[in-house]
């Protein structure tokens, strides 16, 4: 029988390791998926996954049930992704925005090549890489919101709760992100 979530949370707060493990396993695939889609690197996603659940473990006693546990958890995940990306970018010294030339080349190449060849797998792989590159050009918030909406299937209301941002602002981020993505992927859209 599935144990009630509140009970699992309480038991975890009381130090029941098995209960905490059960709680983790109810949501951890989604957490890993969010991190993987946002960071696009398995090792980084695992790091964020671990950081998220350690944070949850440490601060579960402060969870007041004012929102769904899942909303609280995904908010921690989103924040952990932002922080992780900022830290990693600083460490790797990767520029936050591409240089003008890079962007020009990217757009030029896409416009030049047009639709990729007939090999579907190759096509999808190439498309994935290009989508990833385009996503990297969004601001962290645009990227997170775009990923949550288009790849995690979250509703705008849910994203709003999760990130504590008004629904109108979420829509604005989504429209801006979609516009940028359309421009960057214009070669494939046709």
């Amino acid at each position: 029988m599935l144990i009630d979530e509140k009970e699992l949370i309480q038991k975890s707060i009381d130090g029941d390791a098995m209960a905490f493990e059960q709680l983790v396993q109810r949501y951890d695939r989604r957490v890993l998926s969010m991190a993987l889609k946002y960071l696009n690197n398995e090792d980084d996603a695992k790091d964020v996954y671990q950081e998220v659940f350690i944070r949850v473990y440490k601060s579960l006693k402060n969870f007041k049930h004012q929102s769904e546990f899942s909303t609280w958890l995904y908010r921690i995940t989103a924040n952990a992704c932002f922080t992780y990306q900022t830290k990693t970018r600083k460490r790797k010294q990767v520029p936050l925005e591409p240089s003008e030339n890079e962007e020009e080349n990217l757009l030029y190449n896409k416009a030049d090549t047009g639709t990729p060849g007939p090999d579907k797998v190759y096509q999808n792989n190439e498309l994935s890489t290009e989508i990833e590159k385009a996503l990297n050009k969004l601001s962290p918030k645009q990227r997170m919101i775009f990923t949550l909406k288009h790849y995690e299937g979250q509703k705008i209301r849910e994203i709003s709760d999760m990130l504590n941002i008004k629904e109108g602002t979420i829509k604005k981020y989504l429209f801006e992100a979609s516009h940028k993505m359309r421009v960057l992927l214009s070669g494939y859209c046709n």
Partner: peptide, 27 residues
């Protein structure tokens, strides 16, 4: 078309193996 493009281009889901590794490290 744009929506279709997004769907067919990005389907990264974590594998069971990755999830297993993450769980072991978390433990």
């Amino acid at each position: 078309k744009f929506k279709e493009l997004l769907i067919c281009g990005k389907t990264t889901e974590p594998s069971d193996e990755l999830l297993k590794e993450a769980r072991l490290e978390l433990r």
